[in-house]
Simulated assay, not measured.
Amino acid sequence: MESADCTFYTEMDTDALESKGPPSQRTTGAPLKLRCPVRPLYVVGGGSAILWIVVLCLHVTKSSEMAAESQLLRAEQAKVQESCNSSTIESMEAEIEETQNKVSEVSSQMENLQSTVAEMSSQLQNVGAALKEMAPDMSTQMRKLQREVSRLSLQMRILQMGGSDKSFNLHEWEVNVRNETANSNWSDLSGHQYYFSSDRLSWSSARDTCTSMSSYLAVVTTEQEQDFIISKMRERSWVGLSDLEEESVWKWTTGEPVEQRFWESGEPNNEFDEDCGEIKENGKLNDIPCNLRRHFVCEKDDVGAQ
């Protein structure tokens, strides 16, 4: 069996070659020759070819399988998308329709509400205008009613005093009151008359005295009235202001609430059980104890009222 190894000869071996062969076959200084069997090379080349064919077949087979799987996946994906798209679109269309119906309903309700609000606003404006027109008359009527109630209350007190004290002379008292009223100096302002006392009484006595003159302790509701009173009064004076009916709820004797702008800063503070109101020289209101003695200001609505 021949070896697969190749034997190489160079110029250094020429002498040996010349000695071995006949003269006609000797070669002097011949180039390098290769003596190698050809059969192993075919084997290696054939094996490589077979290997490449196998790899190529595997690659083709794998590619075919992957292509088939990819096609199958695309088909499944298309089915899923078709199914999903169909059901999703139907669901979304239903939801959109329902939402549109709700929006329409809410819009209708909003329109009705706006219409109702506008109508109520118009009615409130009308009521406000009517109340504004009625306010002066109502205030006057309340004052007159309060005056009549105070007069009846005073008459009952007088009758009680006359019944329990024999020295009390009702007729004489009425004459004195008439004389005081006739001789007193009443000042007129915008259809109202004001009496400024020269003596000092407690708040309740001042109130009763005003009632006996068909009037009431003054009620201050405007800056004009405030300025007029302080320009005429002699010193701090009682006005028709108290919280005797309900603690810390200050009202005029006519039942009207007191506007905060007329109070002195920090008042009312009820520091010493102060339940009655006076007007100071600067025109501001102040709360003090009702038993203190002060000048007072009476007011009556109609000029020449008895």
Rank of each mutant, 00 (worst) to 15 (best):
A206E: 08
S197D: 02
L201N: 05
G162M: 02
R207Q: 10
G163P: 00
G162Q: 11
D137E: 02
S184W: 06
D137G: 01
L159K: 02
S190Q: 15
D188H: 10
A206D: 07
R143V: 06
Q155P: 02
D199C: 00
D199A: 00
N169V: 01
E148Q: 08
W173A: 11
D165K: 09
H192Q: 15
V149C: 07
P136V: 01
W173Y: 15
L217P: 01
Q160I: 00
S197V: 00
Q155S: 09
H192L: 08
I158N: 11
M138F: 04
Y195M: 09
G191F: 01
S164R: 09
L170R: 11
S184K: 04
R157T: 14
F196M: 07
L145P: 04
M213V: 06
S212I: 07
M213L: 12
M138R: 11
V175F: 07
S167Y: 10
I158F: 12
V175D: 14
M156R: 13
N169R: 02
S205T: 04
E174N: 12
S204D: 09
L154E: 05
S204V: 01
Y194P: 08
S153D: 15
S198A: 10
L201E: 09
T181Q: 07
L170D: 04
T140Y: 03
S139H: 03
M213H: 12
S190L: 14
T211Q: 12
R200T: 09
L189G: 06
M142R: 06
N169S: 13
G163E: 01
S153W: 05
T211C: 08
V175G: 05
S204Y: 00
D188R: 08
G163R: 01
L201Y: 03
Q146G: 14
S139P: 00
Q193Y: 12
E133M: 11
F196W: 08
T211Y: 14
G191M: 01
E180F: 10
M213W: 14
W203K: 00
R207A: 10
L170C: 03
E148N: 07
Y194V: 06
V175Q: 15
N183F: 09
R143T: 13
W186M: 07
D199G: 03
E180D: 15
S197C: 01
N176Q: 14
S167W: 03
R157H: 09
S214G: 15
S150T: 09
W203G: 03
Y216N: 08
R143K: 12
G163K: 02
T140D: 12
T181F: 14
H192Y: 14
V177G: 04
Q146S: 15
W173T: 09
D165A: 04
E172A: 13
R207Y: 04
M138D: 02
W203N: 03
F196P: 03
Q155V: 07
